[in-house]
Computed example of a mutant assay.
Amino acid sequence: MTRPHEPTVPQNSARHDAALHDPRATEAFAPQHAALDTLAPLELVRTFVDDQLTAVQAVQAAAEHLTRAVEAALPRLERGGRLIYAGAGTSGRLGVLDATELTPTFSWPPERAVPLIAGGEAAIRTAVEGAEDRAELGEQDVRACRAGPDDVLIGVAASGTTPYVLGAVRQARAQGALTVGLANNPGTPLLSAVDCPVLLDTGAEVVSGSTRLKAGTAQKIALNTLSSALMVRLGKVYGNLMVDVKATNLKLEARALRLVRHATGADEHAARNALTASQWNVKVAVVMLKLGLSAPEAALRLDAANGHARAALGKI
């Protein structure tokens, strides 16, 4: 007979132990945070902030693998390929964010940044239960977007085991696309299923299993790094200036004006005139002012240099 107040041992102790000891580090219990709910506000905030440093360290450790992904993806994008993102939950939303921000930041055509998220657009704001558990949905989404040999699919899954992402990767490879995988657990199926595996080993979370914390931060840094490095190599910056920014509001118009003045040394009047003549294309305005060309002439020179401002200016 079980004594009062004594914990009951499950009949199937092996199954109980397996449930307690998930091999994925992102699902582990961090003993150093066992008293999290007793911390004073300042200590609580510092705990969360300090734990984020692990995310930076994880991406630093993955730098060589990210570099391989950049090098493999670049020629496909130069041929006109697309960046396709596949994820579920937080990972999927981070993919949507990265894809969305490429257009205003680098004038990357929106049709060439395709975010796929388990459960569709509704899952951006609302959890769509069960969608991530179906590999066939990932396969269907990749078929629907017609991924091909010039495309790059980036599969993102903290666990490294998400069926939706694995299905998307499998289908993308079958259709000839390059596949990149970001996962926060070593030895997981996603990392073995892709052409370019990137391990972001962030370990256990402060709040057990909540991969929206440092695992998500590491994914965000890695995605920022991967896509931004590709944009730089594709000529979307001049020096470190955002010369392909889309000036779609007053803030961005002011930024465009500052960029042109900084790059050329022109006064505000000349910079604004060049931007107006180039329909607020910063890159064209810079080439106009530095070489004394008209807007059409500057645009042709950039086209001949495949959009690289430094090459168009003869400063390779």
Rank of each mutant, 00 (worst) to 15 (best):
D141N: 01
G95K: 14
P115T: 00
G235W: 11
L289N: 01
L302N: 01
V49F: 11
G239K: 04
R79Y: 05
E27R: 14
A304I: 02
K251P: 04
A69L: 12
A254N: 11
P7N: 06
V243M: 14
S91L: 07
G176W: 10
T264A: 00
T126G: 02
D17N: 09
E129K: 05
Q279H: 14
C145V: 15
T217G: 03
A285R: 13
A298P: 07
A19W: 13
V169K: 06
H33R: 02
L178W: 02
G176H: 08
D37A: 05
T103K: 02
N240A: 05
E136L: 06
V198Q: 03
T67M: 07
V260N: 11
A35S: 12
D141P: 00
R170V: 04
R46S: 10
V70M: 12
G292C: 03
L77G: 00
E64G: 11
I221E: 12
T248W: 10
E71V: 14
V245C: 10
T161W: 08
G120L: 13
L36I: 00
T225V: 15
G87P: 05
A309S: 08
N185G: 06
S210P: 02
K290V: 15
A157V: 03
L74W: 07
R68S: 12
A40G: 06
P75R: 09
M242H: 07
H262F: 12
H269D: 15
E136M: 03
R112F: 03
A62K: 08
V237F: 07
V114L: 13
L199N: 00
E43R: 12
A158H: 03
L178Y: 01
N306S: 15
R15I: 08
T188I: 07
E78F: 06
N273W: 11
G209W: 08
E71C: 08
F48V: 13
E297Q: 14
D22E: 12
N12V: 05
R79S: 05
D195M: 01
C196K: 07
E129F: 05
A25G: 05
A18K: 14
L230W: 06
E253Q: 15
E253Y: 11
A122P: 13
K290P: 12
T54V: 09
L191Q: 02
P149I: 00
A34E: 09
L53F: 14
R272N: 07
H65D: 12
Q57A: 14
P109E: 08
L83V: 00
A28V: 03
V142L: 13
E101Y: 04
A295Y: 04
S159K: 07
E101R: 00
R258A: 04
L97Y: 08
T248K: 14
V198E: 05
D195C: 03
P115D: 00
